[in-house]
């Protein structure tokens, strides 16, 4: 027998049957507008489940009749970006470093692309912005270049690396004056002072004078008469203020006795030719390019 629904006096709504300690609950119906919006969303989801990827399985998922996938969307966007860049990349591939620098459009593109590639590949050793790291990672932002700072020289260094496995890799062969006993300890001390004297920092001028002869015999052939360096051989400038492994007497003595042999990977083959040019352009533009 259906019971007559009791209605609340004040609001006119039905009252649910149960009472909690004499307190009744109103059975107010859901607002119509809300209800219809809910139905609309149910309808929407039914359509959505059919059209778009929806139900996951153990080994895959229901793909949906529209064939949408966020991965293909990403791939499309990447392809779009690459297509947009294609013109620039072709032009850079065809141009040499001087031509890239001369064209403002290419130069801007190359600088931006070079910065991105540098951050991904080079910054781990050379630091962000080419700031260098202690322990023999050269500062690329300054104007001191071991192997030459022209855009072509930089490009070549990036391509072949230093002491890498590339057949044309750059190798600087500094003799191990101390480890191979080519010079006596005293000679090494003297030539250290001579090297310091090149930048007017000698502690002992007398030793420096004696060391000058040692320098002329052993060092000048690579480092030059006045220690100005030789980028073709990778011999650093000994007369300037920049020292890769330290510029005090102990560091110089250690370098002469047992030269550091720093390594840089060869990037040809790891990065495409266009990226290599862009990186070289960027490094040259850090402020110290020649």
């Amino acid at each position: 027998m259906p019971t007559k629904a009791e209605k609340d006096a004040v609001t006119g709504q039905q009252i649910r049957g149960h009472a909690w300690d004499g307190i009744h609950e109103l059975d107010t119906p859901l607002p119509k507008w809300w209800l219809y919006v809910l139905y609309a969303t149910i309808l929407w989801s039914a359509v959505y489940v059919v059209l778009y990827p929806s139900i996951p399985g153990l080994d895959g998922y229901v793909r949906g009749t529209l064939g949408y996938s966020s991965r293909t969307e990403l791939a499309d966007r990447v392809a779009e970006a690459q297509a947009a860049q294609a013109g620039f990349r072709e032009r850079i591939a065809a141009a040499d470093m001087a031509a890239i620098a001369a064209d403002p459009e290419l130069a801007g593109f190359a600088a931006a692309g070079g910065r991105a590639a540098f951050a991904n590949n080079c910054a781990t050793c050379h630091g962000q912005g080419g700031a260098g790291r202690p322990g023999g990672y050269p500062v690329l932002a300054d104007d001191d270049w071991i192997w030459g700072g022209t855009p072509d020289a930089i490009l070549h260094t990036v391509r072949v690396g230093i002491r890498s496995d590339h057949p044309d890799t750059r190798i600087s062969d500094m003799p191990r004056f101390g480890a191979d006993a080519l010079l006596t300890a005293q000679q090494i001390d003297e030539v250290t002072q001579a090297v310091l004297a090149l930048s007017n920092r000698a502690d002992d001028p007398a030793q420096a004078a004696r060391g000058a002869a040692v320098f002329a015999e052993n060092c000048a052939v690579c480092h030059g008469e006045t220690g100005q360096g030789n980028p073709e051989l990778g011999a650093p400038d000994l007369a300037d203020a920049i020292w890769l492994y330290g510029g005090d007497a102990d560091a110089i003595r250690a370098s002469i006795a047992l030269p550091h042999a720093g390594m840089m990977p060869a990037w040809e083959g790891r990065l495409d030719p266009v990226t290599l040019k862009m990186v070289a352009h960027y490094v040259h533009g850090l402020g110290g390019g020649q």
């Binding site: 630091g127 962000q128 912005g129 080419g130 700031a131 260098g132 500062v139 932002a141 300054d142 104007d143 001191d144 400038d237 300037d240 203020a241 920049i242 402020g287 110290g288």
Partner: peptide
């Protein structure tokens, strides 16, 4: 001011800021 590197020491001992 450029944050990396904060300064660059040049070969003649002068300091450059970017």
């Amino acid at each position: 001011h450029e944050r990396n590197p904060l300064f660059v020491k040049l070969s003649d001992g002068s300091i450059r800021n970017d």
